[in-house]
């Protein structure tokens, strides 16, 4: 099932620009590169979480091909036990830009993402057992993975020259995880708490637009 979903996704990603190419419109116009600002703030004030995320989008006709790479750590201690989850995560997807003709290159978009992560989970310390005494725990599961689909929508606004501020709201769906035997997954990098079925999250980011090919000026229709 995960493999089928992956192939459907890749096929969709390839098809959408190709449809545009068929009409002679396929030409990557620009690349926007940036990072998530809110995650930097979270990392600064929340001692249990650390997140960093890079965001890239490529404008192709009226679509934006979105690529995200992030790293998330979650570390907390309960009584005498410490739990640590960490791993990179990736998102690949396509957005439809409702403002693709906007001269200021703003984007109001909605689209889909396929996201996945490979992460490790650790629980170690001493657990108090009333009957059998202290239990020394050392669990380290290094090959966990998860994937999910996101419905995304948001805005990217040009604030100065090539600089953009933006946000993306994400509804995460159909999460599947490959868990270990001894430690149930609590936190999934890029997704959040595993018990949540359809979590909603936000990204606030700053991006810089790098033009790749000069787009033809939009011609007024002939009378």
């Amino acid at each position: 099932m995960p493999i089928i979903l992956k192939y459907i996704w890749i096929s969709l990603m390839l098809c959408m620009p190709l449809w545009s190419m068929g009409q002679g419109k396929f030409m990557p116009k620009a690349l926007r590169v940036g990072g998530d600002l809110s995650y930097l703030a979270i990392s600064a004030y929340d001692s249990t979480a650390e997140k960093y995320e890079l965001n890239v989008d490529v404008a192709v006709h009226r679509f934006l091909v979105a690529l995200d790479y992030g790293i998330a750590h979650k570390n907390f201690t309960i009584e005498q036990l410490s739990h640590y989850s960490k791993g990179p995560y990736f998102r690949v997807g396509i957005d439809y830009n409702l403002l693709h003709k906007d001269p200021r290159r703003n984007a109001l978009f909605f689209g889909l993402r396929y996201a996945w992560t490979n992460f490790s989970d650790e629980l170690k310390g001493v657990r108090l057992d009333t009957y059998y005494g202290d239990q020394f725990i050392q669990l380290n599961e290094t090959s966990k993975s998860a994937f999910w689909v996101e419905v995304a929508g948001g805005l990217k606004v040009n604030i100065w020259k090539g600089l953009f501020l933006g946000y993306t709201m994400r509804l995460k769906l159909f999460m599947q995880t490959k868990s270990g035997h001894d430690l149930e997954t609590f936190y999934i990098p890029g997704y959040g708490k595993s018990e949540q079925n359809t979590p909603v999250s936000m990204n606030y980011y700053i991006l810089y637009r790098i033009p790749l090919f000069k787009a033809k000026p939009i011609q007024p229709p002939l009378e």
Binding site: L155, I159, L165, G166, Y167, K193, Q196, P199, V200, M202
Partner: peptide, 21 residues
């Protein structure tokens, strides 16, 4: 912000705190 409409939306959304956990 030349485009006040989109800038306005961006500002409003920046105050949105997602705390649905």
């Amino acid at each position: 912000f030349k485009n006040r409409f989109y800038g306005g939306i961006l500002l409003i959304m920046s105050y949105l705190i997602v705390s649905c956990e």
